[in-house]
Design a protein around this nucleic acid. Structure first.
Lengths: 175, 175
DNA sequence: AGCGTACTGTTCCTAATCGGAATATCGGAG
DNA sequence: CTCCGATATTCCGATTAGGAACAGTACGCT
C-alpha cells in the first residue's frame, strides 16, 4: 500500500521534471500524506523506492553534487500504469482508525471522571492545532483546478476533525 | 500499545472469573476493538499474552479438556496497575487514520469523475453496513451504568461514521 | 579562512504489526 | 460414527514503525 502512496506523491510532483529524493518524499509525506494516511518511516521510503525501481515503476537519476551523489526518483510510464490499475481496482478496503483517546475512554470508569475530562481537554487542544495545520494546507491549495482533488481531500479531513470536536463535546456533556 | 488494548479487554471481562482464551480475545477484539483500534492478528495476540505473562500482568490457567489443554488468561493486580499507570499518562498520541478512499481521491484527476463517483458509492455502501454493525453494538449496550463508557465510545464511532457520510456527500456535490 | 550549526540525504537496526496458513481437537447434527 | 463447523494454538513471511547513526552541504558569523 505504501508503495502506491509514494507513487501518488511522485505523480503529483511529476510536472516538476527533476524528480524527488527520498528525503524530499519524506517531507511531502509529512506535509500532506499524514492527514489521511501515515507518513512512512525513512527506512520504508528507501526500501519501497528500491522495490519500485526493481519493478521499473520509478527511474533513478544519480546527481553528483561535489563529494556525494544523491538520487532523484521519477515515476515511469510503467509506474503510472501500475498506479492506474490500482486506482481502478474496486476492492478498496475500509479506513482504519487507531484512536488512543477512544481506547482510554473505554476504561473511563477506571480513570475517573476528572481524568477523562482532562484527557478530552488535551485532545481538544491537540485537535485544534492539527485543524489549523490542515486549514493552512487547504488555504494554500486555493481553488486552482490543478489541485482540486487535493483540496477535496483536505476538506474531507476538516470534516473529520470537526466531527471529532463534536464527539468530544457530546462525550463531555454525557459525563 | 496492543498489549494495553488486550489488558483492557481482560479488565472489561474481569467480572467473569474464568478469564479468556487467546481465541476468545480475538473474538472480542473483532466485535468491538476494531471500531476504534484494530483487531490484532492471532499471532500478535498470543505473543503479547506471552509477554504480558512474563511481566506478571496476566495469569494463566491451564484447562485440561480431555486430550488438549487450553489456556485461560486473567489480568493480575500488577496488570491492573500497569494499565492504570498508562491511563494516567497524559502523553496520549493523536489518532491515526489510514483512509484508502482519500488516498485514491487524491488522484481523482487520474481516475476520472465516473470512477470517483463509483468509488464514493461503494464506500457509502460499505459505510452504512459498518454503521449498522456499530449501531447493533450500541443498542446491545443500552443505558446500563456498567457499560456507560463503552456506550460513549460506540457513540463516538457513530459520530465518525456520520461525518464520513457527510464527507462523501460534500465530495460528490463538488464534482 | 575557520567554526558552528542547521539542513539534506542515505543507511542501518530493532521491534511491532499484519495476515493467514497449518495443525489439531472438540461438539453437535444427522 | 461421521462429517463439518467452531475452538484453540502455533508458525511463517512480509510489511510497517521509529529513529539512530553517519556523512556531506549551505550559510552566517567572527
Amino acid at each position: 500500500m505504501t508503495s502506491y502512496a509514494l507513487l501518488s506523491l511522485l505523480v503529483i510532483d511529476s510536472e516538476n521534471q527533476d524528480g524527488l529524493t527520498g528525503y524530499e518524499l519524506k517531507q511531502r509525506a509529512d506535509f500532506t500524506l499524514r492527514f489521511y494516511w501515515v507518513s512512512p518511516a525513512m527506512s520504508q521510503i528507501y526500501t519501497e523506492l528500491e522495490r519500485l525501481t526493481s519493478h521499473a515503476c520509478v527511474s533513478v537519476d544519480e546527481d553528483v553534487d561535489g563529494r556525494r551523489t544523491t538520487r532523484r526518483f521519477r515515476i515511469t510510464p510503467a509506474g503510472r500504469e501500475a498506479l492506474d490499475t490500482w486506482l481502478r481496482d474496486p476492492t478498496d478496503d475500509f479506513p482504519v482508525l487507531k484512536h488512543p483517546v477512544a481506547l482510554r475512554l473505554m476504561l473511563g470508569a477506571m480513570m475517573g471522571t476528572d481524568a477523562v475530562r482532562d484527557m478530552l481537554d488535551r485532545y481538544e487542544q491537540a485537535l485544534s492545532e492539527r485543524r489549523q495545520e490542515l486549514e493552512a494546507v487547504r488555504a494554500m491549495l486555493g481553488d486552482r483546478e490543478s489541485v482540486a482533488y487535493a483540496a477535496r481531500v483536505a476538506e474531507w479531513g476538516l470534516t473529520f476533525f470537526d466531527a471529532e470536536a463534536t464527539a468530544i463535546d457530546r462525550t463531555r456533556d454525557s459525563l
